[in-house]
Design a protein around this nucleic acid. Structure first.
Length: 823
RNA sequence: GCGGCUAUGGCGGAAUAGGCAGACGCGCACGUUUGAGGGGCGUGUGGGAGACCGUGCCGGUUCAAGUCCGGCUAGCCGCACCA
């Protein structure tokens, strides 16, 4: 160890040693309690950013801390290797997506290794590796066999820029989640996963996920969007068609004055064919079809629509009512048909005003401020039914239950539940993804590839134009195959899978990453799963985290896993920002991890990022703050160096408390152990853990100015190095070695504290009069409530303060304060 | 519109079960070491001359409120014509 802190050399040295010693390799050990800590694996863009550094620093502290506490810790890392940027690079720079991706993986792996993260690299996975996507395809086939995968022709979200379809979840504010272009519609035959079959379980299980942030659970609940309601079926006058509506307010059915269908509603065209209404209806439908998602939803208030010339019959009142089509009714939710109750629904009210339709109030809110016969806006309040035949006079909450049941008896409806969640569209017209292992045979239809033929390899003779259909269509070798069923010539599916599939089970593959016979062995998965702590950005709250939950449930139903939920505890880290804004190239406020590591070292980068804010919060990057963390490490380094130089023979061991200074240091030392242990283990408050270690160091600096008890100080030095080890692994390893201790710092057991050292002889407490701090007195550390009051009663100062006053009440909190209420 | 989160010195943040608000760090000031600079070491640092006043605002509960309750305001995030 040099006199000066040379982080570059130290970090290189220890990274090499860890690699040579395969320090972080783990295997199943039934005698040890396991702990699985997982950070969301990165897309291999080629460059690590501060968000990654934060994510992996948090995970690494936890992994190292748990290891030191005797757990068998699984801490893996891998690559979400498939995705669009690789294809864009292919188009732009004429490099093969595979070459580009593997080069990036190699670069990023170097950068991760420079951070000194305790990964078991033997378990590294890359989703774009054939040995990974082989099992992805195998899982797809299992889902298909179970009826969870199906192909359907429908109108899909189409990103004109990415030239591919998008799942509902990937459309954000009407724009493509990735490239931000406005999303349009397209009719295509695509593969879907039946995630809606799991809607209720995905929702129900959220209640069991105590270790998840409520924010994420709420977002998922909203996304699943369960709503209880009823179906009601309306006949169409002079027609065979029947129109079924979904409503949460069946109690207002007597107030229905019109009916609205989504423009895409399948029965619309047959109902208008050959009538004078056909032309305007077709024109309206056409207009809607050409609108992007944004255009369609931007006209929030102004309702549009067309009367289709037909009348529906209200099943309760038997009254006919006009049928319209309007884009405010969505084909994708409920049944695509709604009953128009203008008196009690604002959208219906707006529509009725626009088309001059009748408004019939059927709920009286019994509010003197509301005149139901002259409504200025829809009245959604609860109340009593009026104008509702046999149900008039009933409370509307009661009516919601009752009318649905009556409808069921009469065969005109029934109670039901609807979800906002749609089935997951998984086909992508992309090259750089897992090929969908399905084959189309003229005779047999869609047939899965034989499992022994997996993986269906991505071809390399492909052209990238960035336009049109799937790039796999340009391969001369890929499409042609034989039917696995009948052996006749057949064609392969040319689309690839949404990359969110790849990341929906990688945590299972880590448990058995090198298995060539199975996706993962159930035994190993059962040993390591569930993930005890998952860490990542909140931007994955819906997409990834719900897809992964769905996969785990489906795999559970297939008997491949033993638990329905994959992630026991979830920590969503906050963003790293600078100057009050997200780091971005356009703002020019990006701080590159590589620069920081070069200037201050990985240990400083890790320490700062953990110290500056608690993990869930936003982290404001400060160059000054980084210097502070660097300064602290230098301060520790110097103290250890000086200690070794001045007290070469001092060894940690049983020490004697000779004086107050010794007692104070022993107290701080033990208190710090307690504090750091709790802050890391129970609260993930790494910032306060680090600040208490700083206090210990400050205390040690003061202590060494006086009469040094070598054994005690040696204990403090040793403990300091161990407590810092999870945060700053390189420099602590160097100091550990320099101090001449056995083994490696990372392999030490976590220290325990001596509760006796935390008992103080005297403590200072506050005396309040009427809740205001007035004095401080010293009392014995073990003083009871009565002792405290007795001491206070005899104290001169306090007597003076209460003199002439009438003491009404005294409160004493042991170890904290006394409050005297006096008039 | 609906739902969630946040609000504390010049700044990042601390106060874990209602009990000394501002730990720790940054910045700043001063002292010290040094030929000087840098660096180190140390002291001080919410406001106010003071009794006191101070955790976005108004009110409440309590002996005691940053913390609990009711009502606002602002900012951020998510969803949004969901019938």
């Amino acid at each position: 160890m040099l006199e000066k802190y040379n982080f570059t050399e130290i970090e290189k040295k220890w990274q090499q040693i860890w690699e040579k010693e395969d320090a972080f390799r783990v295997s199943e050990d039934p005698d040890k309690e396991k702990y699985y800590v997982l950070e969301m694996f990165p897309y291999p863009s080629g460059k690590l950013h501060m968000g990654h550094v934060r994510n992996y620093s948090i995970g690494d502290v936890l992994a190292r801390f748990k290891t030191m506490n005797g757990f068998n810790v699984l801490h893996p890392m891998g690559w979400d290797g498939f995705g669009l940027p690789a294809e864009n690079a292919a188009i732009k720079h004429n490099v093969a997506p595979a070459d580009w991706t593997w080069a990036n993986i190699s670069d990023m792996q170097d950068q991760l290794k420079q951070m000194g993260l305790s990964y078991d690299w033997n378990r590294e996975v890359a989703t774009c590796h054939p040995e990974y996507y082989r099992w992805m395809q195998w899982i797809f086939i299992q889902f298909y066999k179970k009826g969870l995968a199906y192909k359907k022709e429908s109108q899909v979200n189409w990103c004109p820029s990415c030239q591919t379809v998008l799942a509902n979840e990937q459309v954000v504010d009407g724009c493509c989640e990735r490239c931000k272009s406005p999303v349009g519609k397209k009719d295509l035959s695509q593969w879907y996963f039946k995630i809606t079959d799991y809607a209720d379980r995905l929702l129900q299980n959220l209640d069991t996920l105590d270790g998840w942030p409520t924010k994420v659970k709420t977002m998922q609940r909203n996304w699943i969007g369960k709503s209880k309601g009823a179906l009601a079926t309306f006949d169409v006058q002079d027609r065979e068609e029947k129109l079924t509506v979904f409503t949460t307010r069946i109690d207002t059915i007597y107030g229905t004055t019109f009916m609205v269908l989504a423009p895409e509603y399948p029965d619309v065209i047959p109902m208008v064919e050959g009538t004078e209404y056909e032309a305007p209806v077709r024109e309206y439908i056409d207009r809607c079809a050409h609108m992007t998602e944004i255009e369609r939803t931007s006209t929030t208030n102004e309702k549009t629509g067309v009367f289709i010339g037909r009348y529906a019959v209200n099943p309760f009142t038997k009254k006919p009512m006009p049928i319209y089509i309007s884009d405010y009714v969505l084909m994708g939710y409920g049944t695509g048909a709604v009953m128009g109750v203008p008196a009690h629904d604002q959208r219906d009210f707006d529509f009725a005003k626009k088309f001059d339709l009748e408004i019939i109030p059927v709920i009286d809110p019994q509010d003197p401020e509301v005149d139901v016969n002259d409504l200025k806006e829809a009245c959604a309040a609860e109340g009593v039914l009026i104008n509702s035949g046999e149900f008039s006079g009933m409370n509307n909450k009661e009516a919601i239950e009752k009318i649905a049941l009556v409808a069921k008896e009469r065969g005109i409806g029934e109670p039901t539940i609807t979800y906002r969640l749609r089935d997951w569209l998984i086909s992508r017209q992309r090259y750089w993804g897992t090929p969908i292992p399905m084959i189309y045979c003229e005779d047999c239809g869609w047939v899965p590839e034989k499992e022994e033929n997996l993986p269906v390899m991505l071809p390399t003779d492909v052209e990238f134009t960035g336009k049109g259909e799937s790039p796999l269509a340009t391969s001369k070798t890929f499409a042609d195959t034989v039917c696995p069923c009948c052996g006749k010539p057949a064609k392969r599916e040319l689309d690839t899978m949404d990359t969110f599939l790849d990341s929906s089970w990688y945590f299972l593959r880590y448990t058995d990453a090198r298995n060539t016979e199975q996706a993962f062995s159930k035994e190993k998965a059962d040993y390591w799963m569930n993930v005890d702590q998952y860490i990542g950005g909140v931007e994955h709250a819906i997409l990834h985290l719900m897809y992964a939950r769905f996969f785990q449930m489906a795999l559970y139903d297939l008997g491949l896993t033993s638990s329905e939920e994959p992630f026991q505890n979830l920590l969503t880290q906050g963003m790293v920002i600078k100057d009050g804004a997200k780091m971005s190239k356009s703002l020019g406020n990006v701080v590159s991890p590589a620069e920081i590591i070069e200037k201050y070292g990985a240990d400083t980068a890790r320490l700062f990022i953990l110290f500056a804010a608690p993990p869930e919060r936003e982290l404001d990057w400060s160059d000054r703050g980084v210097e502070g963390s660097f300064r602290f490490l230098n301060r520790v380094y110097r103290m250890v160096y000086d200690f070794k130089a001045n007290y070469e023979k001092a060894v940690p061991g049983e020490y004697e408390i000779r004086n107050d200074a010794d007692r104070k240091l022993a107290y701080t030392l033990n208190y710090t152990i307690k504090k750091v242990t709790e802050d890391i283990g129970e609260r993930f408050n790494f910032n306060t853990a680090i600040s208490s270690i700083m206090e210990l160091v400050n205390e040690m600096y003061k202590y060494r100015e006086g009469d040094v008890n070598e054994t005690l100080f040696a204990c403090a030095i040793r403990t300091l190095v161990v407590l810092l080890a999870p945060f700053v692994p390189h420099v602590t390893e160097e100091m550990w070695e320099h101090l001449g201790y056995e083994g490696r710092a990372y392999a030490q057991s976590w220290p325990s504290y001596d509760p006796d050292a935390l008992v103080k002889d005297t403590i200072e407490i506050v005396v309040q009069i009427n809740g205001k701090n007035k004095a401080k007195i010293d009392i014995p550390g073990d003083a009871t409530r009565d002792d405290m009051l007795a001491i206070a009663a005899e104290d001169e100062t306090i007597r003076g303060l209460t003199e002439g006053k009438n003491v009404i009440k005294t409160i004493a909190v042991p170890g904290r304060l006394i409050n005297i209420v006096a008039k």
